[in-house]
Amino acid sequence: MELQTVKFYQTGTFTVGNRLLAEDERSVQANTERTNSLNSGHRACQGCGEALGARYAIDAAMRATNNQIIAVNATGCLEVFSTPYPETSWQIPWIHSLFGNAAAVASGVVAAMRVTGKTDIRVIAQGGDGGTTDIGFGCLSGMFERNDDVLYLCYDNEAYMNTGVQRSSATPPAARTATTPAIGPDPGNVAGTGKNVPLIAMAHNIPYVATASVANLRDLEFKVTKAMGIHGARYIHIHVPCPLGWGSAPADTIRIARLAVESGLFPLFEAEHGEVTGRTPIRQRVPVDEYLKLQKRFAHLFGKEPDTARIAQVQATADRNIARFGLLGD
């Protein structure tokens, strides 16, 4: 997809800002007038990918809607670290109800906006992977199926981090979590399990589904902005590394997210009405090892004897994604 027609070689298309671009061509995050929807003082861990992803996405949505956003939050890290009494980090109207009902609460907010004639106010629901792919999945599917005018943002850090890193249906094969320990003959999470919610979302034929990553801000903002230009149920699945749960250096959060994309493990694509309509090509392809090695949750794959068989399985997943979504570009 075309993000920017002019290539700027020094600053590139991929940095947050670019002094050589016109103000309206820069990313939302480059702007000093950005909302900072999620404000300083929140209690996310150092290097939290979710805090970053949430601010990226909501700020972009705020710009796209002239600041007319109400957000509904599922229980989880994002909720806990942003709103411990007596301090909230949210700068926007925001509600947290339960772990599993964010999509439904958002449907209710939308209904209220519609019935009170405030249709310029747009509604976002957001949750982690547990609150989205597991416990909130019923409400999510219901919201999709009714085509309610909600943008649902899933911040996927691939496990239940708030409760202490337990497996979710978004946990990748081989990953160590508190409930898939790296012990026994088949350490870590079982291969061949889990679910791909973006594809399931597509199966609802909703107007817009996309994946995004904190490693590619321009792409993320493009997708959120596009989503806000569409009415009906929309879903964006955002990959947000978790230094605590993944056992990675806080400074590596974006690096790891980028390697997930560049290895093909986290494909960036868009789909409209059930059909894939866009993909963000891999810029510099890397083998999955480079991604896995930076994370202690995969450390058992790189012991004295590397577990080449399982690494190959992970590589096969990446290769399949690359082929399936055509991630190597033209």
Binding site: A104, G108, V109, A111, T116, G138, C139, E145
Partner: peptide
Amino acid sequence: TNCEFINVESEFAALSVAIGASAAGARA
């Protein structure tokens, strides 16, 4: 009139939708 009638997928969703609507200022 001036009423949104929403068929939801469960009672959990039913009350959750009502929660959202009510918090957003609608009589639910």
